[in-house]
Design a protein around this nucleic acid. Structure first.
Length: 822
DNA sequence: GGGTGCGGTGTTTTT
DNA sequence: CACCGCACCC
């Protein structure tokens, strides 16, 4: 029988730990595991490193390990802290543990690094002089602030850009270097460094003044908190007896330090103090009166380390045994996900990275199908191949949700989306241009932030003249300097607008806005009973506050009454945001506005994935980490894209790009497609693309080239040859056989060269109310003539299923397809 | 104070 | 190509 503790129940912190009753770990939790997995579940000791190759069942091992700790009564749920890479992974892990235990195990902290830190920081905010309603600034917010600072300091003349300053500040924070630490190491004779220091100092000051933290601060400030307040740290060190970290290869120095602080023993003096404060420590101390450090389990695979650009340090995992002497290491190599052909390709590619521990994935499930390769002339050609192939997989019974398309850069979605829309292929772009990044949504969110955190000047300045109320830059500056001179916040200056001697119209507008914000703030105060009980009872719901704000501020009306046709969509987006807050209120009863803002700030791209959706998923290779699909399309496998141009100059760049390719390959269960284009439009210009060097690292026999780079380059003879296809050796590495050439020349028919370049980007058609019925014959500009076999869908989404005479079966969106009825 | 249009510029991956 | 900043005009 396991006692479940409520995480928010203060008693949970005082509850006696369960008696250790080793040996009761039910075999149920290790049944069906291989010997290595079993060992990873059952090992007990201070430190455990699970080196888990792709698809080796590490999530299974982690969930079973947690369940076994709880079931054997070695730990309460509240003593578990598990760190995952996305919120979605956290939710899944929680569900799986609960399913294993057969009861709710609330009280466990299963979350991302960032979520866990926000939770700690909001709770302990006052220790470090921060408001518990602090705002979390995203990259765009950082950029805005840095832009202002650089402009004020004229730092652009020294070559500083918001992006460069942002990167440098982020890098320092990930190394736990704050302004003063950095100042000590800086070379004050270098004017550039002096200037950077000033930018960094101002940036830090402004975030402080706004009671705001950026993403990197969330981790770094938690570490500073623990280091500066050992008694605060002790609360968490005492509580979390078992810490588990997933994707450990992608932790940066700050995250590593956080884990280090959390696993420290609590010294005897502090234990005594905790005891004096009524916090239960009996039974937790060792012979010396100290509480020993928590046990640490990390899971990772250095071959999948792909976040060096945000400070991930591969040494955290490769030197784990040195950092934690006596650590146990368990190696999981058996793969339960992919076919041997896919694994062989992955093994071959990754073996080209030197300086790695030899590890070979294997499966007992057989070779499976060959990997399919395709080289298009353009990105659209490549996309068309993918769309056709997806349709044929779908006809063969593969659900759309089991198919994913990966790419290196977000810009690559363009061509894919164009073709997918035309092919009436249901798809969803995961990540990319996010809903919350739209200007109107950021505006509405800024209203909420301004209410939740009144000292947030960035949010206030954003909404000051949105919608237009005649408050221009001059008035804004007047308010800002009035605030500074009188040591007021920007918000207080707004309330005092009457005394500023501004025009009556402007003054009225400022006061009206200040009033709306004050009224909204009043809505959020809990009732007397709520305050008494320390809950949010009686406070207005997030959706009610948002509706009040967007109505009373005039934001929604301004969009609705605008003559800009795009504003109609923007108004709908704001209404969609309202709908989202309603969902939030319903799903999180008792949650506060700050809870909502936090959740929005910390959504990861992969969190948007909806398993129930019947759509193909499109995402970057980075977002794909940790996921798996029946069929995977890796696109744009070209020099310059993978490896990316920008990585060439970075130390370790090409090796990291190879790991990215490796991650992509190992996401596939049964079918893997590798595709590329001969030419790719990069910022307007069409550039010649070469096959990626990584393609040749895959043994030839594993790939079935439907159209190889050799075949494609031979067209017209004017294109450069495939990379590394040796001169004087016909076909080179790509095996350009005559038979293929013949087949190829038939495929491309007699179209002139230029047709390939613009066949899709040309005009966006609108066939209006063209009606088609089964039996009709049509002509398509690319596919030629064909017969309509079926029409599905309604209105603008009507889809014609066409059997083309030479191009085979296709689905077309009638409204925009380049077709005519015959 | 607000709107339009020109020209310059950047250009990876993400919590 | 797309976005942003700036200058110009109302």
């Amino acid at each position: 029988m396991t006692l479940i503790l409520d995480p928010d129940d203060p008693a949970g912190w005082r509850e006696a730990p369960p008696a250790i009753d080793a040996g009761t770990t039910g075999s149920r939790l290790t049944d069906g595991l291989n010997p290595e997995q079993r060992e990873a579940v059952e090992y007990r000791g201070p430190a455990l490193l699970i080196v888990a190759g792709a698809g080796s069942g590490k999530t299974r091992v982690l969930t079973h390990r947690i369940a076994s700790l709880i079931e054997s009564r070695e730990a309460w749920p509240s003593q578990i802290l598990a760190i995952t890479f996305t919120n979605k992974a956290a939710a899944e892990m929680r569900e799986r543990v609960q399913a294993l235990l057969g009861e709710s195990a609330s009280g466990m902290w299963i979350s991302t690094f960032h979520s866990a830190c926000v939770r700690i920081l909001r709770r302990e905010a006052e220790s470090i002089g921060l408001s518990s309603t602090f705002t979390i600034y995203d990259s765009a917010d950082q950029r805005t602030i840095l832009k202002r600072i650089i402009k004020e300091l004229d730092a652009d003349t020294m070559g500083f850009t918001p992006a460069s300053a942002q990167a440098k500040i982020s890098k320092l924070k990930n190394e736990l270097a704050d302004v003063e630490t950095h100042a000590r190491n800086a070379n004050m004779n270098d004017p550039q460094e002096v200037m950077f220091l000033e930018i960094f100092r101002q940036y830090t000051r402004r975030l402080r003044a706004a009671s705001a933290l950026d993403f990197d601060d969330l981790i770094a400030e938690t570490v500073y908190l623990f280091r500066a307040f050992p008694k605060v740290a002790a609360l968490y060190q005492r509580r979390f007896r078992h810490i588990l970290v997933d994707e450990y290869q992608d932790t940066n120095h700050a995250q590593y330090s956080l884990i280090h602080e959390l696993t420290r023993p609590v010294p005897r003096e502090i234990v005594d103090e905790l005891d004096a404060h009524g916090i239960l420590v009996r039974g937790m101390t060792d012979g010396s009166g100290a509480i020993p450090g928590a046990s640490l389990t990390v899971v990772g695979d250095s071959d999948q380390s792909i976040y060096a650009f945000r400070g991930a340090d591969i040494r955290n995992i490769s030197e784990f045994e040195r950092d934690f002497p006596g650590a146990k290491v368990v190696l999981l190599e058996q793969n339960y996900r992919s076919t041997q052909n896919i694994l062989s390709a992955a093994n071959a590619v990754i073996s080209n990275n030197f300086d790695r521990k030899e590890k070979k994935l294997w499966t007992a499930d057989g070779d499976g199908d060959k990997i399919v390769g395709y080289t298009g002339y353009t990105a659209h050609d490549e996309a068309q191949f993918i769309a056709d192939e997806i349709e044929s997989l779908h006809r063969a019974g593969v659900a759309y949700r089991d198919i994913a398309v990966f790419y290196r850069t977000n810009a690559q979605t363009r061509a894919l989306e164009e073709i997918f829309v035309r092919s009436a292929l249901p798809y969803r772009v995961v990540g990319g241009t996010k809903f919350y990044e739209r200007a109107e949504i950021k505006d509405a969110m800024a209203y909420l932030i301004a209410v939740a955190n009144p000292v947030d000047e960035l949010a206030l300045r954003r909404i000051l003249n949105t919608p237009k109320r005649g408050i221009g830059p001059a008035t804004e500056t007047a308010l800002a300097s009035f605030a500074e001179q009188n040591e007021l916040s920007f918000r207080q200056a707004m309330r005092a607008a009457d005394g500023l001697g501004l025009g009556p119209k402007v003054t009225g507008a400022i006061s009206a806005l200040a009033n709306v914000l004050d009224e909204a703030a009043a809505m959020l105060v809990p009732s007397a009973e709520g305050l008494e009980a320390g809950t949010n009872a009686g406070a207005a719901k997030v959706s009610d506050v948002l509706v009040f704000l967007v109505e009373r501020s005039g934001l929604l009306d301004a969009l609705r009454n605008s003559r800009d046709p795009q504003d109609e969509t923007r108004a709908e987006n704001v209404e969609e945001l309202v709908a989202q807050t309603r969902d939030f209120d319903r799903e999180n009863p008792g949650a506060t506005l700050v809870d909502f803002l936090t959740q929005v700030s910390l959504v990861a791209a992969a969190d948007e994935l909806d398993d129930a959706s019947g759509t193909v998923s499109l995402m970057t290779l980075h977002t794909a980490k940790g996921l798996e699909y029946h069929a995977v399309f890796l696109t744009g496998i070209e020099e310059g894209l993978l490896p990316h141009q920008m990585s060439a100059s970075e130390p370790g760049g090409p090796a990291e790009e190879r790991r990215l390719f490796y991650v992509g390959i190992t996401r596939a269960r049964k079918r893997l497609y590798l595709s590329l284009a001969m030419s790719r439009a990069q910022f307007g210009e069409v550039a010649v693309a070469m096959p990626s060097r990584y393609l040749q690292e895959i043994p030839e026999g594993l790939i079935d080239w439907r159209q190889s780079p050799g075949m494609a380059t031979s067209r017209g003879g004017t294109q450069p040859r495939a990379l590394n296809a040796r001169r004087g050796e016909p076909g080179g590495a790509w095996g350009t056989r005559d038979r293929d050439l013949e087949r190829f020349s038939v495929t491309r028919s007699d179209k002139p060269k230029t047709e390939w370049a613009n066949r899709v980007t040309g005009t966006v058609r609108d066939n209006g109310d063209l009606t088609l019925a089964p039996g009709d014959r049509i002509r398509h500009t690319d596919f030629g003539e064909g017969k309509v076999t079926q029409v599905t869908g309604e209105g603008t989404k009507r889809i014609a299923h066409v059997s083309f005479d030479t191009a085979g079966q296709k689905k077309l969106l009638i409204k925009i397809a380049p077709i005519e009825k015959l």
